[in-house]
Simulated assay, not measured.
Amino acid sequence: MEQRVTSRSQRTREAILYAARLHFAAEGYQRATIRAIAASASIDPSMVMRYFGSKERLFDAALDVDLGLPDLTGTPVERLPHALVAHFLAPWEQDAAEGSLRLLLRSAATNERAAERLRRVLHEQFTSSLTGALGAERAAAGSGLVAAQLLGVAFARYVLRLQPIAELSVSALADLVAPSMRAALADL
């Protein structure tokens, strides 16, 4: 019985987060309401408060992003750009329903809390991924350069839908981005 309650509770939490991401992405933090989010999740607004306590904490939870970057220890430096592009874009490719990645990217432009979250996520996750291949100091220095390039690609591909970037395969896009990223990493 407890397992059923836990899985139902998890489904409710996920439904709230999904609805919140859609509303925050479409309306922004200020205009999105707990009532609208609850209605989209087909639950009572009090349930949103029960699970998250406040709109602010719901927003924080909606912005919780794992880029899924692997530990790149042992990856030759010349292969790092392809590996990073492929791994960075994979969750975006699967995040078609305006999920947390698009929300975070759009929100960071207008909301300081989201911008700080994005800076922290990018620095921590890229540094962690690159440390085994570049060493801690070079990884920390390079994480911002790599993040800047890949955020530009993500913004052009998934938000602006800029052609031909939006239509290229991830592999073809990696081939285009790799030389500049390789040069940036080599100069660290």
Rank of each mutant, 00 (worst) to 15 (best):
L105M: 15
L105Q: 13
A108M: 04
A109T: 10
T110V: 14
N111W: 12
N111T: 12
N111C: 10
E112W: 01
E112R: 10
E112G: 12
A114P: 11
A114S: 04
A114Q: 13
E116M: 04
E116Y: 03
E116F: 04
E116V: 11
L118I: 02
R119S: 10
R119K: 09
R119T: 12
R119P: 08
R119F: 09
R120Y: 10
R120C: 08
V121A: 11
V121W: 00
L122Q: 13
L122Y: 07
E124R: 08
E124Q: 14
Q125I: 09
Q125W: 06
Q125T: 08
Q125L: 03
F126W: 02
F126P: 09
T127H: 10
S128N: 10
S128Y: 02
S128L: 05
S129D: 01
S129K: 03
L130T: 05
L130R: 07
T131S: 10
T131F: 07
G132Q: 05
G132E: 07
A133T: 03
G135Q: 09
G135R: 07
A136T: 06
A136Y: 00
A136M: 00
R138I: 00
R138W: 05
A139M: 01
A139H: 03
A139R: 00
A139F: 01
A140N: 05
A140I: 03
A141V: 11
A141Q: 14
A141F: 07
G142P: 00
G142S: 01
S143G: 12
S143T: 11
S143E: 10
G144A: 14
L145Q: 13
L145F: 12
L145I: 00
V146E: 06
V146A: 15
V146Y: 06
A147I: 10
A147D: 02
A148C: 02
A148W: 06
A148G: 14
A148L: 15
A148D: 14
A148F: 07
Q149W: 12
L150N: 10
L150K: 11
L150Y: 00
L151C: 12
L151F: 07
L151G: 07
G152V: 07
G152I: 05
G152D: 04
G152W: 10
V153R: 01
V153Y: 01
A154V: 13
A154K: 13
F155N: 12
F155Y: 15
F155I: 13
R157K: 06
R157I: 03
Y158G: 14
Y158T: 09
V159F: 12
V159H: 14
V159P: 06
L160S: 08
L160N: 10
L160I: 01
L160H: 09
R161Y: 02
